[in-house]
C-alpha cells in the first residue's frame, strides 16, 4: 500500500467536505473553471461566486497550450486564460491569496507538463504552501503518477486524485482507487469535455460498478451541464462535477458587470436539486 498516513496540517479537507455532504445526505457539488479566464483579476470573484452558489469543492483548471482531453469550450477558455497571462505560477498565487477566505477545498485540474516544467518537488512544495488540497493531472495515469508526482504531494499532505473511465479495467479501477486520496473522478463519457444533451443510459450501472470497488467517494463529471442531469447523477455519485457549461457562461458574459452574480445564480440552480 502507498503511504497514505502522514497528512499535514489541513488533514484531508477534501475528505472532510465529502463527509459533511454525506452527513447532510446529499452529493457534493464540484464546479470547474479555468483560472485566468477571462482575466486573472476576475478569477477570485468568480471563485467566491462558486462558493456562494453552493460549491463544496472547487476544481480549478490550469490552462495548457495543448489540452488534448478538452472539447472546444474549455480549449477556448484555456487560450483566453493564456492570452490573459495565466500560468501555473499565477494559479498558485490565486490559491495562496484566496484559499482561506473561500473556505472550500481546491483541486488543481491540470495537464502534467506545466507541473513537470516547474519540477515536481518545487511544485508540491508550492502547492502545499499555497493551500492547494488536491491535484488531478489529466494525462498522468496512476502508473506514471505514482512514480513521479504522488510521493512529493503525499509528503506534503496534498491529495492525488486519479481518473477512472468507462474503459478502465478492474485492475485499473483498483489501481486508481488505491492511489487516490480524497476522491476518485469517474468520467461519465468516453469523450473530451463538453456539454451533452443526454447522459449515457448505462451511467448509473457504470458508477455502481466503480463504487463497488472503491472505498473513496466517487465524483462524476464530463457532459453534465443542467440541473436535471445533476439530480440524476447525484442519485448514484458522491459528487457531481460541472465544467463546460459554467465555462461557457463565463465566456458569454465576460463583458457583463455582473458576471460573478450570473455565475452564482447558475451554480445555485445547479445545486438546488442536491439540497432537496
Amino acid at each position: 500500500m502507498s503511504p497514505r498516513r502522514k497528512r499535514a496540517s489541513r488533514d484531508g479537507a477534501i475528505a472532510a467536505a465529502f463527509k459533511a455532504c454525506a452527513k447532510e445526505r446529499r452529493s457534493a457539488f464540484i464546479p470547474f473553471l479555468v483560472a485566468g479566464d477571462p482575466s486573472l483579476e476576475a478569477t477570485p470573484d468568480l471563485l467566491r461566486a462558486l462558493v456562494a452558489g453552493g460549491a463544496d469543492v472547487i476544481e480549478l483548471g490550469v490552462a495548457f497550450s495543448d489540452p488534448i482531453a478538452d472539447g472546444p469550450t474549455i480549449q477556448r477558455a484555456s487560450h483566453r486564460a493564456l492570452a490573459a497571462g495565466s500560468s501555473l505560477s499565477a494559479v498558485l498565487g490565486i490559491v495562496e491569496r484566496h484559499r482561506e477566505e473561500l473556505g472550500v477545498p481546491i483541486v488543481l485540474f491540470t495537464y502534467y507538463n506545466p507541473v513537470h516544467a516547474r519540477g515536481v518537488e518545487s511544485f508540491a512544495a508550492q502547492a502545499a504552501d499555497s493551500g492547494v488540497d488536491g491535484v488531478l493531472c489529466v494525462d498522468l495515469p496512476p502508473e506514471e503518477g505514482l512514480r513521479e508526482l504522488q510521493p512529493a504531494l503525499e509528503e506534503r499532505g496534498v491529495d492525488s486524485i486519479y481518473l477512472i473511465a468507462a474503459t478502465s479495467t478492474r485492475e485499473r479501477i483498483d489501481r486508481a482507487a488505491a492511489a487516490s486520496n480524497g476522491f476518485v473522478y469517474y468520467t461519465a463519457r468516453s469523450d473530451v469535455t463538453g456539454e451533452r444533451e443526454d447522459l449515457i443510459p448505462t451511467l448509473a450501472r457504470e458508477v455502481k460498478r466503480v463504487r463497488r470497488r472503491v472505498r473513496l467517494p466517487v465524483a462524476v463529471g464530463f457532459g453534465i451541464s443542467i440541473p436535471e442531469q445533476v439530480e440524476e447523477v447525484a442519485k448514484v455519485a458522491h459528487g457531481v462535477v460541472v465544467g463546460s457549461s459554467l465555462v461557457r457562461l463565463v465566456e458569454e458574459n465576460a463583458a457583463e458587470a455582473d458576471l460573478a452574480g450570473r455565475l452564482e445564480h447558475r451554480v445555485a440552480e445547479l445545486t438546488a436539486p442536491l439540497r432537496g
Partner: peptide, 12 residues
Amino acid sequence: GGRYAPETLMAP
C-alpha cells in the same frame, strides 16, 4: 517515453 495519456485511452 512512457504513456502519459488520459485514463480513457489507457485501456485502448
